[in-house]
Amino acid sequence: MNPKHLQPDVPECSLCADPAVVYQRNAGRHLCGAHFTADVELRVADTIRTRRMIIPQDRVAVALSGGKDSTALLLLLSQLLPAWQDVRLIAITIDEGIIGYREETIQSAERLTRHLGIEHHCISFTDLFGDSLDTVLKGRETQACSICGILRKKALVVGAQQAGATKLATGHNLDDEAQSVLMNVFRGDLPRLVRNSGAGSSGKFIPRIKPLSLISEKEIAMYLMLNDAWNELPECPYTHHALRREVRSMLSGFEYMHPGTMLHLMESKKKIERYCAGSLISAPLHACRECGDPCSGDLCQVCSLLRSLGK
């Protein structure tokens, strides 16, 4: 027996006698590594099922950056999907071209897909848009996250279309989602706050799903560490320009002082969505005159951005 079992300074799992690795403040219980892993898998499966994120015969493209969230997503889906009928996974990695950062995460993504035996596609900004992100951002570093976000979304959609995907799964976690709610409130951007690109959205887009949206960032890191899949990877050099970084730190402080804050924010978003249902008039969709993608104006966001970048 582990001698630590006998020491009162090591809390025990509420479900067995093993040493606890976590105290879940919302549930008021301790869990050991095995029970914590099972709890995360159960909650992700429940999110997928109750929101009908994946249905039989789906071909799910997983946006795999090689960072912790997408790594956990691919591991969890590959663990859970055998229980679903005829569902296939494909991984898509976007190489934005960020020197000193992306190389390592791409290698990590390649190792993981090889290990899991999952088809893997890699698409680069240079192939798709003619330049790397580093080149595009020269003199525009403060806009890094918004420019990268627009181009990366487009690259993922292209990758998912090329792979014949019916769903596009991303590794957004509870912290990411709660941060986005707060950022949209700060910007006064109600349409973006209630925009739905999920499994039930219109047939013009490949629906995006976020199976980890109720799992916190810390739980994801713990899940990886407990399953020997944790890699300490470099941080994106452009994040210090991001508003998200400030919001993340502030919200994390609130969550610590007032447990449940992030979940409450997500519940508020759902309520606002319900109140707004049908009352927000969205512009009719047209085909972008450059690329043909559906958009509300004459040019889609990507073509408009590329034009402003002189492409």
């Binding site: 300074d9 960072g67 941080e235 994106c236 998200r244």
Partner: peptide, 25 residues
Amino acid sequence: KKMISEDTVIEADDEIRIIRIAHGG
């Protein structure tokens, strides 16, 4: 090298590693 919960009591002879989880991108 074993993960511990935040209410675990640590003692004078313990070696504790703190790993930051947040990464951008």
